[in-house]
């Protein structure tokens, strides 16, 4: 476990009266430490989440292709991803440490495994929900199997896939807050530092608020993407 180092820990002796008294919200602290603490943490957080979602999406997509084509392997893949999802995140981090060390890899393996269940389930369910008649019609008009998949089944499954992406993105941003228990990265780091140092309220509220805001913004962006890619769905 790495404890955050650097200037994140407030110096109660020399700050403004608000900082010294640990007031509810010290705007001057936020202004002072935006550049050296909050902004880097935000960028690290985005990086942590983006890597996990990208890799998770790619793996889930490949698994979904296999699970959709060969129905027999669908239940085992589902059970394994369900199994991974049940392991508490903090515990998974610590169980991985003996194998992968105190590295970014440890955090990413854990984050990726949490995205798999959500993404895989939604991809498979979306693909299975495509009406048989539509697929038959496509095959009947001379589409090859691959054409049917890329031009008919995939576009029709897209709304479900994007819904999965939304849920996975929001949860990954949320779970990435626990990363500082392994490596000092992300918005969890200022929170963790503020907790270990006399519960500095301002830092907790700012960093916590930033995580929530980041999750909501990412969610909104995917909704926009959804509207752009699947204009025929109007919920």
């Amino acid at each position: 476990m790495t404890v955050a180092s650097g200037p994140v820990i407030p110096n109660f002796g020399s700050g403004s009266s608000c900082e010294v008294n640990n007031g509810w919200f010290c705007t001057d602290w936020v202004r002072q430490h935006w550049a050296d603490t909050l902004q880097p943490a935000l960028f690290q957080h985005i990086e942590l989440a983006a890597i996990a979602i990208g890799i998770g999406f790619a793996i889930a997509f490949l698994l979904a292709l296999v699970g959709f084509r060969f129905r027999l392997v669908d239940p085992p893949i589902g059970i394994i991803s369900d199994f991974l999802y049940t392991i508490p995140s903090l515990a998974l981090f610590q169980i991985l440490v003996p194998f992968t060390g105190i590295t970014l890899l440890t955090v990413e393996i854990a984050l990726v495994s949490y995205t798999l269940l959500i993404l895989y389930r939604n991809m498979i369910e979306g693909l299975h929900a495509v009406p048989v008649e539509v697929v038959d019609a496509a095959r009947g008009s001379g589409f090859t199997r691959i054409q049917t998949f890329t031009r008919v089944e995939l576009p029709l499954a897209l709304p479900a896939i994007l819904t999965g992406l939304r849920v996975a993105t929001v949860s990954t941003i949320s779970i990435a807050t626990i990363a500082p228990f392994v490596i000092a990265k992300g918005l969890g780091q200022p929170i963790y530092a503020a907790l270990s140092e006399d519960v500095f309220k301002t830092e907790i509220f700012v960093a916590g608020g930033m995580v929530i805001a980041l999750a909501l913004v990412a969610d909104g962006l995917i909704v926009l993407l959804q509207r752009g890619l699947t204009p025929w769905v109007r919920a």
Binding site: S174, I178, A207
Partner: peptide
């Protein structure tokens, strides 16, 4: 609820 991180 999903957007609320447990640590936060």
């Amino acid at each position: 609820g999903r957007a609320l991180p447990s640590l936060v």
